[in-house]
Computed example of a mutant assay.
Amino acid sequence: MRHLSEEELEQAIEDAQSADETRLVRRLCFIKNLYQGDTRKQAGRRVGISRSTTRRWARAWNDDGVEGLRPRFGGGRPPKLTPTQFDELCGILEEDQPWTPQAIHALIEDRYDVTYHPAHLSRKLRAAGMNYAKPRPMDPRSPADADEILAERLTEALGEDDHDTEEDDPVVLGFFR
């Protein structure tokens, strides 16, 4: 059934492309191939779909035109936490740092009664701009003047105190295997 003229169909394809509706563009190209005289099988082969899909798309076009071809399902499982809950979680994590991964999982389960796979939760947190990090506190055994001691020892090791002549070869430090 010809719901649109060829010019209107071409305009519908351009509109779908500008709206970044790639799935609709593909379906409209299938219809355009039918308009140009292809059989359903040939038109389907050109856009890379199966025979059963050509039947569904042709029926959707005949019943409702462009709107019949518009995809209705965005795909994917809905998130376990609502966007508001996830924002609240991120606020809690930023406020009371540091958190271990196990503590984050326990918090989510206690507060929202939801569980996530550890790899998926880390992906979600990275996408929100958060990263797991290990805090590195100062070693309590190190002396308060550790930087001065290091500088003094380096000076001694490099022999910088007794640079009387300029003919001395410079000392090069390195690590070799």
Rank of each mutant, 00 (worst) to 15 (best):
T22N: 14
Q97N: 00
Q102T: 11
L81M: 05
H117F: 02
P135Y: 04
D164A: 08
Y132L: 13
D64P: 07
G76L: 07
E67L: 15
L69I: 05
L125D: 00
A60P: 09
E67F: 09
A12N: 00
Q17E: 15
A58Y: 15
E94P: 05
E7H: 06
G44R: 06
A106K: 07
Q102W: 11
N62T: 14
A16M: 00
F86Q: 05
P83S: 02
A103S: 11
L4E: 02
W57T: 04
R46I: 10
F86K: 02
D15K: 11
R153K: 08
V114L: 04
A133H: 09
L28I: 06
I92Q: 14
D15T: 11
A157R: 13
R123W: 02
D96G: 10
E67A: 13
P137K: 02
R40W: 09
H163W: 13
M138K: 15
F73T: 12
Q11W: 12
R77L: 05
K124G: 07
Q36T: 08
R77A: 11
R153C: 07
D110C: 06
C29P: 06
T54A: 13
A127L: 08
L158Q: 05
I108P: 01
L9A: 00
G48K: 01
A16V: 01
D139A: 04
A16C: 00
P78S: 13
G68A: 09
K32Y: 10
D168M: 10
E166C: 12
V66W: 04
S18N: 14
E109R: 10
T115Y: 08
R111D: 00
C29I: 11
E7G: 12
W99A: 01
I49R: 04
A60Y: 08
T84Y: 10
P79Q: 03
F30W: 05
N131S: 15
A133I: 10
W61M: 09
A146T: 08
R40D: 09
R27N: 05
E152G: 09
Q102H: 08
S142L: 15
R111M: 02
T84L: 15
E160T: 14
V114P: 00
P143V: 12
S50L: 12
N131I: 13
F175T: 14
P83T: 03
T53D: 05
K134P: 03
G174H: 05
E156H: 04
A146P: 06
R51N: 15
R153G: 05
S50N: 09
E88H: 14
R77V: 09
